[in-house]
Write a protein that binds this DNA or RNA. Structure first.
Lengths: 162, 162
DNA sequence: TCTTTAGTTCGGTTAGTTCCGAACTTAATG
DNA sequence: CATTAAGTTCGGAACTAACCGAACTAAAGA
């Protein structure tokens, strides 16, 4: 029935909860993704996912396909074996960062709009509060640079390995 | 009826949508919060919030109280005036950063657990992928430092003003 | 060809969210 | 004391998310 250690189960719940909140995944999708991250490089079959998540075939099918679509999960096959072996996309951390990059770029645009608007129409407020907003913008820019640098570093590592 | 410019309305929608996704607020709460951010320092009354959001009294009451509870919004009163004047908490950007700080600390703990787990039980995978995870951890630590520094800077600014 | 394996698709149920209207409260005002 | 102003509280309607079971498909194996 349940095919993995209590330690792993607990971690899956913990990480799953995090993905649920921070990456807008359905609870089951988040658990599957967490399971993949904590699993060996040769992945897991559909049935193994069924038994560790204790969910129905239909739900697992749907959520797994969703994870495949958004490239969080990938699969491979073995010749003479009809099963698919699912695992976390090897570059999942890099693509997570790419998501963050987009999201932070949007946030920068947003805060620029807010600063513009308030300096135009709420001058008084802007004068007492605008500095804070500019600091926040600097903060976002620094975060953005950090993300970009990390992505660059990750790219060079992968080149060495492949 | 509608008491503000189309420009402001559009921005409220845009920022509201952002808060809805990124700060887990109900749609109406996110709109109210966005409205507060784009409003003068002397705030808005309950009725003004009613008419710009076009929502019911009960909904505005509930969501506004929620925003007060989590300190995103505050209010003040004028002597001889029963109305309350609502505005965004002046330190909302700072407290947003404090939220981020907590969230990133949790994420660091999480990735440490993942790295530990995989280096114990999925050694093969860890050897080919662990470097990426460590880079990600470095990235998180750098983000954390950036947040801390920005909070510090914001604190000194506020001290000058007050 | 019949069965098994490995999933997929569809319709429906349950659970939870979001908002609303109506009735209520509390304090001031005429 | 009745009325108005400024909200609050409660019950429920409408909608959405998340999951399930049953029936289905497509390919491989006996």
């Amino acid at each position: 029935m349940d095919c993995c250690s209590p330690e792993k189960r607990k971690l899956i719940e913990e990480i799953g909860l995090h993905f649920e909140k921070n990456h807008q995944l359905a609870p089951l999708a988040a658990r599957i993704y967490a399971m993949m991250i904590l699993s060996p490089a040769d992945g897991h079959t559909f049935d193994e996912i069924l038994s560790t998540t204790q969910a129905s075939k239909s739900s697992v099918s749907t959520q797994l396909n969703l994870l495949l679509q958004i490239k969080k999960v990938e699969y491979f096959t073995k010749s003479g074996d009809r099963k698919r072996y699912f695992r976390a996309n090897k570059m999942y951390l890099k693509s997570t960062l790419q998501e963050y990059l987009e999201s932070i770029s949007k946030e920068i645009q947003l805060i620029e709009k807010i600063v513009d608007f308030n300096s135009k129409y709420n001058k008084e407020k802007f004068e007492s509060n605008g500095q804070i907003a500019l600091l926040f913008k600097d903060y976002l820019k620094c975060q953005k640079e950090n993300i970009k640098n990390t992505i660059k570093k990750m790219s060079t590592i992968k080149n060495i390995n492949s």
